[in-house]
């Protein structure tokens, strides 16, 4: 169990989450004119979300096989521009089905 006071742990987690996302908004108000920097910031969200997903998704379920099935289903449905919720739920169903099949083998 926890070795540090819970109150302190919660306060620390809050601080290192709130400050990185707020300080740039408060301290930085000019428009960035540098084209490279603007382009960099344009590509950041796509890069971050991809790096968050790969390879972590393969450890998100009990087996990398079921996680892989969930990933494939998510990519195919997202490619067909299905909604966020449809993609997420279909991926979860795929994981569940594959794990049920694996358990039945």
């Amino acid at each position: 169990m926890t070795a540090v006071p819970l109150g302190a742990a919660i306060a620390v987690m809050w601080a290192v989450t709130y400050l990185p996302r707020t300080l740039p908004l408060v301290l930085f108000r000019r428009e960035i004119t540098n084209r490279w920097v603007r382009s960099f910031l344009h590509y950041v969200p796509y890069a971050v979300l991809t790096a968050l997903t790969l390879p972590a998704i393969f450890a998100a379920t009990t087996s990398w096989v079921s996680a892989g099935a969930g990933l494939v289903v998510a990519v195919v449905l997202a490619w067909r521009r299905r909604s966020l919720l449809t993609v997420a739920l279909a991926a979860a169903v795929a994981v569940w089905l594959v794990e049920a099949a694996l358990a039945g083998l």
Binding site: P45, Y46, L49, T50, L52, T53, A56, I57, A60, T61, T62, S66, A67, G70, L71, V73, A74, V75, L77, A78, W79, R81, R82, S83, L84, V87, A88, L89, A90, A91, A92, V93, V95, W96, E99
Partner: peptide, 17 residues
């Protein structure tokens, strides 16, 4: 276990289109 994939599937849904 199936719930574990939800978060990542959402990221996929945002990035792929």
């Amino acid at each position: 276990s199936a719930m574990g994939v939800l978060l990542y599937a959402m990221f996929v849904a945002i990035v792929v289109p």
